[in-house]
Design a protein around this nucleic acid. Structure first.
Lengths: 199, 199, 199, 199
DNA sequence: AATGAATGAGGTTTCATTCAT
DNA sequence: TATGAATGAAACCTCATTCAT
């Protein structure tokens, strides 16, 4: 007979109300925080009813986990791409920090959602989300391992200090005053070179 | 009869249900976060009805501001006490950081409440709370000004980096693994002395 | 087997919890007044939870508007039916007044709700409800226009006087003493014929 | 000795926080209606705490009764003053209506409070307030008795019609469009002279 | 006469979620 | 996959009132 009709291509190109939903959730979690973001507002932003949300995710908490998964995967890729090169160790660290801060401060709602919703130990979702974050932070553990550091340097504290100062920048960053790359360079150099002229 | 005793002892022993309330609020905000802490749970912890709360504060948001005021005032005093001495600049900075971290990580609910409830710009209480925090951070601005630093050092970024790494320690600190004073010493030394042996 | 029966009887027998709700609201508003009628009591009378109310109307105020809409539409139809005839103008006016008073004083909760909850200008719902009422009163404007009246008669004041005296009858009407039709006849004749024997 | 000192004359000139309170209550009842007017808002307007209110009146309901007493007494005096003359009966009625409408529509909060808070039979305060109102309306009963009316005229219905149209004017009156005296004249003339040219 | 604190009841509304369709 | 309706719990807050001071 005739060639097969090609109708319903949409199934291929737009398989994913699920993705819309996740993006909507990320936006709401970023804007309002997990507690204050209502399932209705999330669903509305995705163009559906609150009840429909449960056809895709089994709870609001699952949505938060989904947002974390996407966010962590995305930032992991960006940071790993930034260090796929032969730079010397300190420069590679700086490149990673620049990529990290670009993601964090660049306005992507998934990263913003991550930062606004760090779970504490008491949170039921703590374990699963912590695992995702830890996986990501491993990249930095590796980068610090490559660094030639003075004998006895506490590399764990160094990592926590560097990541902490970057994370916290989310609370004060103002894009009209600072650039992520500039921040990364400054932070790394503060650590790399002595600030005490007497030393 | 004998002369009447002068003191009205109640005034001394129970000066303020208001303080009880503030403490209860701090505990709830610290444990559950502002959104998840209910006015009923706060009032119950202070031994009163939810309605009674409104004899002292006109809204839940005002309670959060009250908690911030107490917390900021208290940490300000502690840090200022720690630098009321003649130590050289870097040592004074370290002493301030130690006091700061001791407060932050020592389990005081007011500080914990502060850390769990940093308002973002979109928050109505942002302005008033931000002003309180800024006042406190001025202490560190002064300490950094006293530091003899290499020409061209960006002291603002240095302050933000140091405060950021300390603030974030709240999310990973484990009292059985680290001590606040140790953390303070390590963080300050990372900045003070070169980490790059080649430098 | 036999062919399946076609009707889905439920659709017919229980078309609308929404209507139940509106009726319940009308009853409560009529009995207690808008302010004193609680959403809980309205919902209970409709056999649902207070929260379910919000699946149908987005606020208590909207419920009041809904009650007005039904009431005004219903009385409009009744009055219009009463004047669908070839009576002379004064008799048509009397018929309209009789229908109006029958509705108002006959115990229908929707009309009672209307009367007990006339919004003042300061009320947020004033505009929308006023528009509904004005639409209805247009009927009387038309009836008065048809009346052959002495030169210079202020038809607006006449309408307001007649409608006012009927509206206020709601506050003193006692069904064991008066009949709506009797009231209508008397009121209209007071206006139609001279009461001053000297004139 | 010397002439008596005249201190504390205030006790004589301003005996009455009680009056301030009553006026404040009238304002609140007029603006918001009895249910929506809170004891706190009334007290605040009188410059005191809600609790202090109970030093003067034993309940909110008592305040409403107090407001009615003052209002009724005041309108009674005004209307009676307007008919203390030798005008012929119809003119006296018109004068009384003018005084009545002047009071009602003139913006005095006590009268406005009366109009917004007509108690229904179901209201506990109905009996006592109704008695006050009935006493006042007796004036109009007397005025109508003096009127030379056609045999068989139902004077009770006539009174209710006239008072009703005046009462209801409170809901539509606009001072920039109508004057109370003009309204009184028109209403009375509608009743006095035939409107049907054929009659 | 006045008040600050407290209370128990109850206000409207929102919540995350379920379920039949 | 999607929805409208429904739910029980709980949210913040206001209410009129009481009481010791």
């Amino acid at each position: 007979m005739t060639a097969p009709t090609l109708d319903k291509p949409k199934r291929v190109t737009r398989p994913s109300r699920r993705d819309d939903l996740l993006k909507a959730a990320a936006e709401c979690f970023a804007e309002s925080g997990y507690d204050a973001a209502s399932t209705r507002s999330i669903a509305a932003r995705a163009g559906m009813q609150a009840a429909s949300l449960y056809s895709h995710y089994k709870s609001k908490a699952d949505l938060l986990i989904g947002v974390h998964e996407v966010g962590i995967e995305r930032i992991t890729q960006e940071v790993q791409a930034s260090i796929a090169n032969d730079l010397p160790p300190w420069e590679r660290l700086e490149a990673a920090c620049a990529a990290h801060l670009r993601a964090l401060l660049g306005g992507d709602v998934f990263f913003a959602a991550l930062m606004r919703n760090v779970p504490l130990r008491s949170d039921p979702a703590y374990t699963v989300i912590r695992r995702l974050r830890d996986g990501y932070e491993t990249i930095f553990t590796g980068l610090l391992d490559d660094l030639p550091l003075p004998e006895g340097t506490d590399r764990r504290k160094l990592r926590l200090m560097l990541l902490g100062s970057m994370s916290w920048s989310f609370t004060w960053f103002n894009p009209s005053k600072d650039a992520p790359e500039d921040l990364a360079r400054t932070f790394v150099r503060f650590l790399r070179h002595s600030l005490d002229p007497a030393a």
